[in-house]
C-alpha cells in the first residue's frame, strides 16, 4: 500500500468511518462551499471614517506610519517627502500596476525603476489589494502588477491603499479574493502585512528590519483621481 493510501486508511480506521459516508461528505462539501464566518470582532467595523481611524491607530501601534492624501495624483509627492525627511535616497521601484504607473512621478525628483527586485533596491512601492481596519493590516497579491519580491527585499516599503479598498476584517478580504479570482482559487501569493519586519530573538528585545523592510509607510488615497 502506498504511503498515501495507508495514511487515509489509518485516519478512517481511527475515526471508525468508511470512505463513502454521505452525511460526512455533505458536511464537508457544504462547509467548503459556504465558508461560514465565525466570530467577527467589532473593532474593525463602523463607517468609512471610523474604519480609517481604526486602521491608522492599529498600523501605528505596530510601528508602521500612515499618511493620507486626497487623490492618487498626490501619492508621488508624499513618497518624495517621506524619503527627503528621512534622508533616504530618492529612488523608487514598482511593478506594472496601472494605478501606480499612471501617477505623476515625473513631477517629483524621484528616480523610478520598474519590475521585480533583484535585491539591490532601497525603496519599493506597491498598491494594496485591500486594507484591514481591525489590525492595521495590508493585503497584497502577487503578479506583474505588484511583484512579491518588492514587498520583502527593499529596506523601505511604501504601500498605497485606496480608501475604497479598506475593509473591516480578514473575512471581507477573502470575500473580495473569491470575487476576483473565483471560488477556491487564489493568486500564487497573498501577503498580509502588519507593520515592518521585526525580530525579538535576541533576549526578547524588539528590533525592526529583521529580513524584510525596516520601514513601512502606508499612503492612503481617499480618491482615485
Amino acid at each position: 500500500m502506498s504511503a498515501r493510501d495507508e495514511i487515509f486508511a489509518s485516519i478512517r480506521r481511527s475515526l471508525n468511518v468508511g470512505p463513502v459516508d454521505a452525511p460526512r461528505r455533505d458536511a464537508v462539501v457544504a462547509r467548503l462551499a459556504q465558508a461560514p464566518v465565525g466570530i467577527i470582532p467589532r473593532r474593525g467595523h463602523g463607517d468609512a471614517a471610523e474604519r480609517l481611524a481604526t486602521f491608522k491607530a492599529e498600523a501605528e501601534r505596530v510601528q508602521a506610519t500612515v499618511a493620507e492624501v486626497a487623490t492618487a495624483a498626490d501619492v508621488p509627492a508624499e513618497i518624495a517627502r517621506y524619503l527627503r525627511e528621512n534622508n533616504l535616497p530618492a529612488t523608487i521601484r514598482f511593478g506594472d500596476d496601472p494605478r501606480l504607473a499612471d501617477m505623476p512621478w515625473a513631477e517629483t525628483a524621484l528616480e523610478v525603476a520598474r519590475g521585480p527586485s533583484e535585491g539591490d533596491d532601497l525603496n519599493a512601492v506597491a498598491a494594496a489589494f485591500a486594507g484591514v481596519a481591525e489590525t492595521g493590516t495590508l493585503a497584497l497579491v502577487s503578479g506583474a502588477d505588484n511583484p512579491t519580491t518588492l514587498n520583502f527585499l527593499p529596506d523601505n516599503h511604501f504601500v498605497v491603499l485606496f480608501a475604497d479598498d479598506l475593509v473591516a476584517d480578514l473575512e471581507s478580504v477573502f470575500a473580495r479574493l473569491r470575487e476576483k479570482y473565483g471560488p477556491g482559487a487564489l493568486p500564487r501569493t497573498v501577503n498580509f502585512i502588519t507593520g515592518p519586519s521585526r525580530s525579538a530573538d535576541i533576549e526578547q528585545t524588539l528590533l525592526l528590519g529583521a529580513h524584510g523592510p525596516r520601514r513601512l509607510h502606508v499612503v492612503v488615497a481617499r480618491g482615485l483621481s
Binding site: 503578479g143 506583474a144 511583484p147 493568486p187 501577503n191 502585512i193 519586519s197
Partner: peptide, 24 residues
C-alpha cells in the same frame, strides 16, 4: 504566542508562480 494582534507576515502560498508572474 507573542501578544501581537497579528504577526507581521501572514503569507498565503498557492501552487507555483503563474504565467506572467515576474517572481516566485
Amino acid at each position: 504566542a507573542t501578544g501581537q494582534d497579528m504577526s507581521v507576515y501572514t503569507t498565503l502560498s498557492t501552487g507555483p508562480r503563474r504565467p506572467g508572474d515576474p517572481d516566485g
